[in-house]
Design a protein around this nucleic acid. Sequence first.
DNA 1: ACCAAGTAATGGTCTGACCAAGACCCCAAT
DNA 2: ATTGGGGTCTTGGTCAGACCATTACTTGGT
Lengths: 252, 252
Amino acid sequence: MADMTAAWEPVPRSRTFELVLARIEEQIIAGRLRVGDRLPPERELVDMLGVSRAAVREALRVLEAQGVLRSRVGTGPSSGTVIAAMPDAGLTQLLRLHIALANFPMDDVVEARATLERASARLAAELVTEDGLERIRDPLLRMDDASLPREQFNDCDTDFHVAIAEAGRNRLMADMTIAVRNAVRHTLLTAFNKLDDWEKVASRLRAEHHAIYEAIAAGDTQAAGDLVEAHVRGFHQDIVKKITDGTNPPAP
Amino acid sequence: MADMTAAWEPVPRSRTFELVLARIEEQIIAGRLRVGDRLPPERELVDMLGVSRAAVREALRVLEAQGVLRSRVGTGPSSGTVIAAMPDAGLTQLLRLHIALANFPMDDVVEARATLERASARLAAELVTEDGLERIRDPLLRMDDASLPREQFNDCDTDFHVAIAEAGRNRLMADMTIAVRNAVRHTLLTAFNKLDDWEKVASRLRAEHHAIYEAIAAGDTQAAGDLVEAHVRGFHQDIVKKITDGTNPPAP
DNA sequence: ACCAAGTAATGGTCTGACCAAGACCCCAAT
DNA sequence: ATTGGGGTCTTGGTCAGACCATTACTTGGT
């Protein structure tokens, strides 16, 4: 009998929608489908691939969830299914759910945030343009308004960190940074709303944000990275941890 | 007339599968659905939600693509649709496509790899257990075999970096690190296969790997991080860049 | 006690139909 | 010639209903 040491890998039982998926991915990987290109209409794909429309649609749904596609009804340009590029939407969604599932404990998320935002800030300090600086400054200044409601403060905070991530001009780093930041958005807002000494916390955050901005504007990569990392870690350590308890209630 | 400055955000035209998605996510975010739990059978969801089975299935496909679900046919335990946790599968897939779409230029990917693997190595040096060290050592030693085919060398290389990422005991960091490493797996293999002076490159990689291992084993966070970052950057800079040209052929 | 055939539950697939949004075409009214 | 409006076609979105394949449990015979 033949050599049995090589495990009898079970034949990957492919579902037809996975085959459709594979065909489309082929085109993408091979570079034949590029951002902006239109896919054939669903009904044509059905004929071309010899599968049901449901199978085609399930494959398209997957790609859409990954931010690779965008579908619109109707005729004419901008209709139909086109290759798009919205990686951070897909990333954000994915992280959000897995964080909720506690596959990713909050401490892990903070560590990841610290790592990513530190690196992003360093890139920003190195590469930021005048335009990029302005995008960082805008939410920074809006946050200085002491009467700003907490929810909008949180939004500006998000914008601030997003602007830094994008200033580094590295889409992958930025998208991951943004996705992780977005994934904790709700948690932060909850924490904000539970705070008694809101004004004290807010002014601390403002001060840290200003310092970060200055470091980036000055092109001081080391300081920018250190300040951001301390900002992220400190905030979660000192503020969020004391408050967030009931989130993700443990099983009975 | 009322204030018009607030943009007339178009009502988000929700498709029914998105509503189904939202309901399921609700349960997850609220913690009522946890890893290991089973969802009702598709047909029951259809009755409960008052939508077609196609809509339910499209929603489930999305969650499956994100690594949140796992479906199996048949009866009995382990069949049906259950909440699972396979974040890195979803992440890897997502990054792979977007890298292919050149939404993420290779330089950006290298930067991200350097950042993530540096952080992972630091965590590993700090937290690794004896068991974790062994998981790192195993692929390391297998790579020492000079007769190892390039493809398997690449697999071991992947295993080595994955083992380091997992030794830091931070699932999110590890999954992102793994996903990015996997996303360039094909690119690296292609580069390997084009090399003329393979043995020279291989021994350089071996040496760097051993040094990294030693630093982690010694608990030297600084050295571990620096070595890994240099390893990642140096490899792409010196090896891959010289060789990889035709990948992702430019549009005509 | 054990094995085999039967059966029920479940996801996977397909067909065919209709709906709704959007863009284009064509003709009538100005 | 221009413009307005309605018809129409394409396209994705949704649905209902049926059948298939896999899997585990049940039942009955040896």
